[in-house]
């Protein structure tokens, strides 16, 4: 119950902060531009395949921008002390903040459904890949936000939190590039650990349970690390 209370407070804080509108503006500008680019080429296809890439690309930078305030700002302002001296568990605080930012991301994704609607209006896209791509986008974004939440919990400096988050997300997006240079199980790990490789099946219309499990694992891992980080503040 308190988890949802905190989630609601965080979601409302985004809606009243200019920073969040900046981020949503940049997000819709990038995805909108690449959508137009995709359909204005010769022989356009009625597929979401082109613009979904712009969403995953922009979330590498925008997810940490969204999450950086969640803990870092509260820590700097001292409001975190009030939260932590209230009868609220560390899990409730972390999950609440996470659900708050996740609901904003869901709204952002919802805005891009407009592009898909245009495809349906002017063409006949295959609905399977559209649905699987959106499932993938949601999971991908959710994982990126969990990473950002964790980096925000590490510091009182929002800039440091954002840069660290972008760094981790970029690394997690390019691990597969090093795979060919290595071999054996290392190559497999590098290939499978990539946030991007996991998403590429889904944008083609394939929902592999292992991909879903992968994203859920990343989310769980970083939420767990966030709880640990908040807990550790009590033990300094």
């Amino acid at each position: 119950m308190k988890t949802f209370l905190i989630a609601r407070r965080e979601a409302l804080a985004y809606l009243t902060s200019p920073g969040a509108y900046d981020i949503v503006f940049v997000f819709t500008a990038i995805t909108g531009y690449l959508f137009i680019d995709g359909i204005s080429r010769p022989f356009p296809e009625a597929t979401v395949n082109r613009y979904v890439g712009s969403i995953t690309f922009s979330m590498v930078f925008l997810a940490p921008a969204l999450t950086m305030r969640l803990f870092a700002e509260e820590r700097r302002l001292g409001t975190l002390d009030l939260l932590l001296s209230s009868p609220v568990s560390d899990w409730q605080v972390v999950l609440g903040k996470y659900l708050g930012v996740l609901s904003l991301y869901a709204l952002m994704l919802l805005a891009t459904v407009f592009y898909a609607a245009l495809l349906y209006w002017f063409g006949t896209p295959d609905s399977g890949p559209v649905a699987s791509a959106y499932l993938g986008l949601f999971l991908y974004g959710a994982a990126a936000l969990a990473v950002g939440l964790w980096t925000s919990s590490l510091t009182a400096n929002q800039t440091v939190a954002a840069i660290l988050g972008v760094g981790i997300l970029v690394l997690l997006s390019i691990t597969q590039l090093a795979a060919p240079a290595t071999g054996g199980w290392v190559a497999t790990v590098l290939e499978e650990a990539s946030l991007v490789t996991r998403f590429s099946d889904m944008r083609q219309g394939v929902v592999d349970i292992s991909d879903v499990v992968y994203y859920l694992s990343v989310i769980t891992l970083f939420l767990f690390l966030s709880v640990r980080s908040v807990e550790s503040k009590r033990w300094v």
Binding site: L77, G78, D81, P87, V88
Partner: peptide, 25 residues
């Protein structure tokens, strides 16, 4: 508890803030 720096959520109204804190507690 009131910490030294009086940390408050500046984006909330007094009533919203107090009722949020009441619910948390």
């Amino acid at each position: 508890y009131l910490p030294e720096s009086v940390p408050l959520y500046t984006d909330m109204t007094v009533r919203q803030y107090l009722s949020y804190m009441a619910a948390l507690r």
